[in-house]
Design a protein around this nucleic acid. Structure first.
Lengths: 202, 202
DNA sequence: TCTTGATTTGACCATCTGGTCAAACTCACG
DNA sequence: CGTGAGTTTGACCAGATGGTCAAATCAAGA
């Protein structure tokens, strides 16, 4: 295990390669389905070498998840109480959809975890996520009280955004099986935009 | 392996117990995360005994999936070209949501499979599912042409229904982490109903 | 009851997998 | 260069896991 001085050039490179490889493997096979050997090979290292940088398979997974949670929640974080309600929400949706397009592996990493009951991030859900959502719920409720957007159940409104946007990353195979050559996001963006304009107009 | 005569009382009972147990275990841990021992124990059998009824772990999984695909697609099947468009679609959505509530394990079984690229049901997606969806797409398009519902991308309309309804089963942990005690479906049903009434009104 | 096919199981096996370790090798720096 | 820290690896281990098999047990019809 490297000492905890400033990381050397090699340490930086290998840690990054491991996390990148682990993202590929974990998102494609889930925690249990991924093997350390597979991650090591994909990172261009031998298994013992990989375990020199991370103490265990679990540690890699944890490092990945906690590093990504922040990125994952960022779009919601940016929802601004002082902006124009409709535009704020639509911008949030666009950011979320963009993430499904640009970071599908990350999306599937979380999806894998959630579908199986989130054994390794249950706590973060009840704390970080719940706190953030409640904060934004207050903003949404305020906008509804002011008549600026339609009155809806704020939690379910948020769920719907998550569901609609992440669906395209998480169930990519299914979407492509039906769309064929058509680019999923080309159709999804205007569809979802229309949907929320209609839904949110008071 | 039992001969392929008419199944005995014991065969029926044990096969059913195995599939029930397998549904629990596979939906909670994914294919790779499930163990034959776990399924056997949950079915009240020894491992060799279980393997007397199914030749392999994979065979159990396949039997489960193919048996359930039919059930899973039934609600869409029932979408009737001759009914009232808005009511037909809303009824479909209600059936779908009901399935998320009543059959969450089945939903998660498919979700697990899909998130990981559907290695074991890829074919069914491109055939059975694609065929059914295209059939219903024609009906939707017709309704749109007749001005009976708003013009929308029919595939994405269907995706949105899947996304919104299955979200509650597949990401149950997340939903509950935010809703606390509140019943997810009590809020979801009216929310989704409102959403599609607004969306589909021309 | 007896017989025969159906059912069940303990013991066993090969392979996979996460993880360890001591020895070897490399690199940066004085 | 020499040296000590940082890096890499082959060999290895223990436990888990999917699957096999022959022998034992059970159930139902003649």
């Amino acid at each position: 295990m490297p000492k905890d001085r400033a990381p050397t050039r090699i340490q930086k490179k290998n840690r990054a390669a491991i996390l990148e490889a682990a993202l590929n493997v974990f998102s494609a096979h889930g925690f249990r389905g991924a093997t350390v050997d597979q991650i090591a090979t994909e990172a261009g290292l031998s298994k013992p070498n990989l375990l020199y940088y991370f103490p265990s398979k679990e540690a890699i997974h944890t490092a990945l998840l906690s590093g990504l949670l922040e990125i994952w929640l960022a779009p919601l974080h940016d929802l601004d109480a002082d902006g124009d309600p409709m535009e704020e929400i639509l911008a949030y949706i666009r950011r979320k959809l963009q993430m499904s397009r640009d970071l599908p592996r990350e999306s599937r990493l979380f999806a894998n975890e959630l579908v199986q009951g989130a054994p390794r991030i249950h706590e973060s859900l009840s704390n970080d996520l719940k706190t953030l959502v409640d904060e934004k719920k207050a903003i949404l409720t305020q906008w509804m009280d002011q008549g600026k957007i339609a009155r809806l159940h704020p939690y379910h409104l948020i769920f719907s955004i998550w569901a609609l946007t992440q669906h395209y990353a998480d169930f990519d195979v299914q979407v492509r099986a039906i769309l064929g050559d058509e680019d999923p996001f080309d159709g999804a963006e205007p569809f979802i935009d229309t949907l929320y304009r209609k839904l949110l107009t008071p």
